[in-house]
Design a binder for these strands. Sequence first.
DNA 1: AATACGGGGGC
DNA 2: GCCCCAGTATT
Length: 356
Amino acid sequence: MKQLFRQKLIVWFKENKRDFPWREQANWYKTYLSEMLLQQTQAVQALPYFHKFISRYPDIASLAAAKEDDILTLWAGLGYYARARNMHKAARIILEKYNGNFPQKWNETLALPGIGAYSAAAILSIAFNKPFAVVDGNVLRVLSRIYAIGDDIRKAAVIKEFQRLADELLDTKQPGDFNEGMMELGATVCLPATPKCDDCPLRELCRAFKDKRQPNFPFKSPPAPKKNIKQFVLLFKNGQRLFVRRRPANGLLARMWEFPVLETEKLSLTKKELQKLLRKEIKLETEISVILNKMTHIYSHIKLEYVPVLITAEKGETEWSETPQKKWLSVPALEESALHGAHKKILTLPAFKKLM
DNA sequence: AATACGGGGGC
DNA sequence: GCCCCAGTATT
């Protein structure tokens, strides 16, 4: 069974694998970069970012030498920004502590920032042929169906069970092809909603297929409800430029740029009510010129509702002075900056464009 | 063991 | 509107 599993999977993978740039003239840097980009991210979405990063930072030394803000700017729009900051830290460790070579021991790899069990196994197996099995969302789906395992994959203990199973099944002679084969199968054939079982090389080995219960697997308990946040987004305008500040070093969208925001219970205020609120909260003589329509932005655990407000500001107040944490930028500069997604979305509004 | 952490694609 | 994605770090 195990031998047949490995052989069918690897033969299928070699014939059916998609072409990706990190699979061409592969080296460990490309494998590493691709794995960081691909965490919780579909391959098609990571693709343009891979090209941008390889072009700008072709090797580990150039990545390590980069400024964090430049890496964050290049990463802007992809999400999970801790990946970018951790990748930068890891690059410096690889350069300094390991002399520019990737550490090939399990414990050393796992100790790098941004690398957990999945990424360690992926990089070591794909780039260095080391016998470690990956368990990602694809592997969970494929194995839960083949073995008809109905345990809740949201639980850490269950993922450990699947890790043991994957370790047993791994083809230790070709660990990279085995791992990539499992993930490729999950990504292109053993799909979440409508699996293409007719095209599956492991069909005869699949318990869920035999029982026609594919949609029952994997089982995942319902997610926690999203927190609701409402805020006004303050677009302070002086000439052609808008005021932005840097977010705190920790938490949501850490160190990304944003327009100042004002949390509120109620988003539907008249201009007069909002003007009064602003005077109380920011203690500056400003004049609201336009209140734009409500917008919504969904994060993994938050539902954000926000109303952009254009405000004319006179420069000269010390609050408006530029520091490393705050500055005035034109719209074209904002578009290319590390302004976070919810606020970049404002720049695309026709109503906003008319005002600038 | 549970929660925080993004944004886009597919149905 | 809901689920998913080549998961990791923190609590």
